[in-house]
């Protein structure tokens, strides 16, 4: 079975491709460039097309449902009308599947389930990445403020940090916010 992944996020597409390969689907191709999308899909001639819902090019795929000379094999969006929960899950995860007519539903179901879980895993990963990034930013700010305090008040590193922490506790603020205030104030006093 030939599967095409249409996704502008190369990382997510790679995660999905890995998942598909692990599950035994080895014939997978990725399209990340949306120019002449249909021509490329026709050239690959896949059985299943997976596309992320944040992609405006999804409307281009609708053309494949049309009866036209250009379309060699009729394609349908994968929707099992008896299974609204799985449709809901796929839209929530942000992925949609198109299949060549006549393909067995059970086989597609397993691919779609895999897609949903990989897409969800990807967005968790992104959330975590964003959190880690902001933690690093906070750490940097606190270090900078500590340096400013050490210089201005002639304190040791430990003392400077304790001063920020006690101020934060007294003011019921985060130590990061106190650090930001110190940096702002020092800019003003320049």
């Amino acid at each position: 079975m030939k599967i095409v992944i249409v996704d502008e996020s190369p990382v997510r597409a790679a995660i999905l491709e890995d998942g598909l390969r692990e599950a035994g689907f080895t014939n997978v191709e990725r399209i990340g460039e949306m120019r002449s999308l249909l021509a490329r899909i026709y050239a690959i001639d896949p059985d299943v097309i997976l596309i992320d819902l944040a992609n405006p090019s999804r409307d281009i795929l609708e053309q494949m449902f049309q009866v036209s000379r250009a379309v060699r094999r009729p394609v349908a969006m994968f929707v099992d009308q008896s299974d609204t929960a799985s449709i809901q899950a796929s839209v929530d995860a942000g992925v949609s599947a198109y299949i060549v007519d006549g393909l067995k539903k059970e086989r597609i179901k397993s691919i779609l389930d895999l897609c949903i879980s990989r897409f969800n895993a990807f967005s968790h990963l992104q959330d975590e990445l964003a959190r880690a990034k902001s933690e690093i930013e906070e750490r940097k700010t606190i270090d900078r403020a500590k340096g400013l305090l050490m210089k201005a008040k002639n304190l040791g590193e430990e003392e400077a940090y304790r001063l920020m922490r006690s101020t934060a506790m007294r003011e019921k603020k985060k130590i990061f916010e106190i650090a930001q205030a110190i940096i702002t104030a020092s800019e003003l006093f320049k």
């Binding site: 819902l53 795929l61 609204t84």
Partner: peptide
């Protein structure tokens, strides 16, 4: 939304 397909599908399934 970014595509008419999305608008249609989200309307159809009640989102």
């Amino acid at each position: 939304e970014v595509s008419w397909s999305n608008v249609r599908d989200k309307l159809n399934i009640g989102m």
